[in-house]
C-alpha cells in the first residue's frame, strides 16, 4: 500500500462536505447526520473496495447515494418532517436574502430526488460531471439531462412562487 495515501484521514477530511450535501439533500439535520454516519460506517467497512487510483470523494458520495436510495425504497412515501420549518441555519445578514433562501430551500424539497442529487453534486459540491456520474451510477448524458431539467424546474418553482405573490397584490 502506498504510504502517502491515508484513506482514514482523507475520509475524516471529507466529513464536513458529506454533512453539507446530506443536509441539502434531506433538509433535516438529524436525518442528514444519520445518513452521514451510515455512509462513514459503510465506507470504513468497504474501504478495501475503493480503487486507489480513483478519487475518494465521488466514491464516498456513491456510498451515500446507495444508502439514500435504499432508505427511500424502504420508505417510499415522502413524509414531511415537523422540523421542516425549524431548519438550523445561521441567520443571513439581510432579510431579503433570507426570504430568497427559504424559497430555494423549499423549492429544492419539491424537486424529484434524482434531480436534487444532480443539482447539489454539481452546483453545491462542484463535482465534475463525470464524478457525478460515478457517484450516482448513471451515464454522463443522464447527469446532463437531469441537470438541465432540474435547474429549469427549480427556476420555475422559485419564479412561480413570486408570481403567486404578485397575483395576491393585484386587486
Amino acid at each position: 500500500m502506498d504510504d502517502s495515501i491515508k484513506p482514514n484521514e482523507d475520509i475524516g477530511a471529507c466529513i464536513p462536505r458529506l454533512r453539507r450535501y446530506a443536509r441539502a439533500l434531506l433538509g433535516v439535520r438529524g436525518e442528514a447526520d444519520d445518513l452521514v454516519q451510515d455512509t462513514l460506517e459503510r465506507a470504513w467497512r468497504k474501504l478495501h473496495l475503493w480503487r486507489r487510483d480513483t478519487e475518494l470523494r465521488p466514491w464516498l458520495f456513491s456510498i451515500m447515494h446507495n444508502i439514500f436510495i435504499d432508505q427511500r425504497r424502504r420508505a417510499p412515501e415522502e413524509t414531511v418532517s415537523l422540523d421542516e420549518h425549524a431548519l438550523e441555519f445561521p441567520v443571513a445578514p439581510a432579510q431579503e436574502r433570507m426570504m430568497e433562501m427559504v424559497d430555494l430551500e423549499s423549492a429544492l424539497r419539491m424537486l424529484p430526488a434524482e434531480q436534487r442529487e444532480v443539482i447539489l453534486l454539481v452546483g453545491l459540491e462542484q463535482l465534475a460531471y463525470k464524478d457525478v456520474a460515478v457517484a450516482l451510477g448513471i451515464p454522463v448524458g443522464t447527469v446532463m439531462s437531469r441537470l438541465s431539467r432540474g435547474r429549469e424546474r427549480l427556476r420555475e418553482l422559485m419564479e412561480g412562487r413570486q408570481r403567486v405573490v404578485a397575483l395576491k397584490v393585484v386587486k
Binding site: P16, R23, A24, A92, M101, I119, L124, L154, R155
Partner: peptide
C-alpha cells in the same frame, strides 16, 4: 442557473 449555484452555496456553507 448561476444564481442558483451561488445561492445553494451560500445557503449550505454554514454547515461546513
Amino acid at each position: 442557473y448561476r444564481k442558483q449555484n451561488k445561492a445553494l452555496q451560500a445557503l449550505f456553507a454554514p454547515v461546513l
